[in-house]
């Protein structure tokens, strides 16, 4: 029995269906540990993104997607509270860096506040911008160009700006869907190091195609296959001695 205080999110019997005849996420139950990095692995199309997007209720933006089960964040079912509140507490970083193209770097960091209609004092705004950019290691690089558009940054810098944008709202949990798959190796390493530091502030779930990445940065790993959670446990355990033969053959490069 795991101590509830060390768990940020309990996923209970989660199912997601795009069409009535097929579950893209099928009866998944697991715990997401607090202040750790949890990696979700599995071959393409196994339902990683679908699972992740259920956690901040993105499926509600489209018609006809069925979500059932329970997602208890600090003990409260997030499927039963206001979706906008959930999304403020559960941040998301996407596969392709997507800073808002018409906003300056500073406005991108503050976008969560302006999109929620929250007005801030100037000093407050400055401190949030500085703090958020510092925590993604971008402050020194952009502090003289805060009023320039975010889209002029390099891909890796843009992705760190997107992480800062999510962090600015002080979420409990951040969801990342293959955040480095569009980046070069150096930018990828920068972001991996950053995530390892960030986990002291926020719990992180990261979907990754890259087994090496999961091994390097995550403490817990989940392996999915055809919509099911095949195996979940400590990353060390899973990489050294996977319990399921499907996990074993994925990790040895035979599927996916």
């Amino acid at each position: 029995m795991e101590n509830i205080n060390n768990t940020i999110l309990e996923i209970r019997d989660l199912c997601v269906a795009y069409t009535a005849d097929k579950l893209s996420v099928s009866h998944v139950s697991t715990d997401i540990p607090r202040n750790q990095i949890t990696a979700i692995m599995g071959p393409s199309g196994c339902g990683k993104s679908t699972l992740l997007r259920a956690i901040n209720r993105m499926h509600e933006l489209y018609r006809g997607i069925q979500v059932s089960g329970e997602l208890l964040i600090d003990g409260q079912d997030l499927l039963k509270i206001n979706a906008m509140r959930v999304r403020r507490e559960v941040g998301m970083v996407f596969q392709r860096p997507n800073p808002f193209p018409t906003m300056s770097i500073a406005d991108n960091v503050l976008a969560g506040y302006s999109l929620n209609g929250i007005r801030l004092e100037k000093s407050m705004r400055q401190s949030i911008v500085e703090q958020s950019l510092k925590s993604v290691g971008l402050w020194n690089e952009v502090k003289d160009s805060l009023t320039k558009r975010g889209t002029f940054l390099s891909g890796g810098q843009q992705q760190r700006l997107c992480i800062a944008r999510a962090l600015a709202l002080k979420p409990k949990l951040i969801l990342m869907d293959e955040p480095t798959s569009a980046l070069d190796p150096i930018a990828t390493t920068t972001i991996e190091n950053l995530l390892v530091e960030l986990k002291n502030e926020v719990s992180i779930i990261i979907v990754t195609h890259n087994m090496g990445q999961a091994k390097r940065i995550s403490q817990k790993s989940l392996f999915m296959y055809l919509g099911e959670l095949v195996e979940g446990g400590s990353t060390e355990q899973m990489f050294s001695d996977p319990a399921d033969r499907r996990t074993k053959s994925y990790l040895s490069g035979n599927i996916g």
Binding site: L61, R87, L115, N116
Partner: peptide
Amino acid sequence: YKEAALALGGSYFRTVWKV
């Protein structure tokens, strides 16, 4: 862009208006 704005907890109206 729309998903990013809504994922920050933005309302639909503000997402249209600001993004």
